[in-house]
Design a binder for these strands. Sequence first.
DNA 1: CTGCACCTTCCCATCATGGGAGGGTCAAGC
DNA 2: GCTTGACCCTCCCATGATGGGAAGGTGCAG
Lengths: 153, 153
Amino acid sequence: MQIGQAAKASGASAKMIRHYEAMGLVAPAGRRDSNYRDYTAEDVARLRFVRRARDLGFAIERIRDLLALWSDRGRSSAEVKRIALDHIADLEGRIAGMREMVATLHHLADGCAGDGRPDCPIIEGLAGKNATAAARTAPTARDNPRRAEPPRP
Amino acid sequence: MQIGQAAKASGASAKMIRHYEAMGLVAPAGRRDSNYRDYTAEDVARLRFVRRARDLGFAIERIRDLLALWSDRGRSSAEVKRIALDHIADLEGRIAGMREMVATLHHLADGCAGDGRPDCPIIEGLAGKNATAAARTAPTARDNPRRAEPPRP
DNA sequence: CTGCACCTTCCCATCATGGGAGGGTCAAGC
DNA sequence: GCTTGACCCTCCCATGATGGGAAGGTGCAG
């Protein structure tokens, strides 16, 4: 089948399918005389695998590992599980970071009247020279190796 | 003071400070004869504001709005609060998406022995033709306008 | 005068994805 | 046969926020 149908069948966009091929995540698809890519059911299954792994937030390089394990009959499930658990830990770390942001924002917003007057603890919290809630919670993120949010934007 | 000191004082890297200037988020700093940028305490305060807002996950364009409101004496705190609450909602949406991922991953990983044998529900869940946990939870993310995770990577 | 720490600009990379230009292929309908 | 429309192809650019690094200027201490 053509790439458009493979896209519908797998859930990945045609653009992404070509991209995955170009970056070597999936093997190059067969070609017809017209130079159109030609996909088999197996190709589609692999693309769906990639798509689902992306939906779970796995980074492409991790999916590369997962694909290799998938086609490795001698794999140990321990390897797969470790990747999954690492990813869970990663997600949980990011969730924690975002929850801190939300907590600080709630804290600031709760004190804000939200009316026509200019007085605003939110702005003050961001601007303040002294240690504000924003300043106090921020360092947690600042100390971390300068990464946060996950894949899948 | 020079950019390096402004960086230390504000918490933003020198690289980022130049970037913010180039993109017009902050006004161009003064220059000495040497062409070195020269920062005042006010400049540093603005940079610190930006830094804190970034720590709370605000996107640059939102920070642009917040900076404008900060220096707008006639602002209404309602505008600021709306920006903050919108951002909270955004963060919470992303958190929910990631929690779904974590839940699905836990579900799959719980059934995985994690030993030397190849049998693995995680791989099967990703590969399965039928509706697996991965397939069932994924659509939630798939239906959304193709965005997820937040700023600050 | 040398060395070192700092600054400057400019370009490239990340990560996954989309958009679009410019052009080829193919089947249906006239 | 020819047009039309729906596909497909490749190539380039953009996103968002940040870092890395090259090539070269500045300024101070020894």
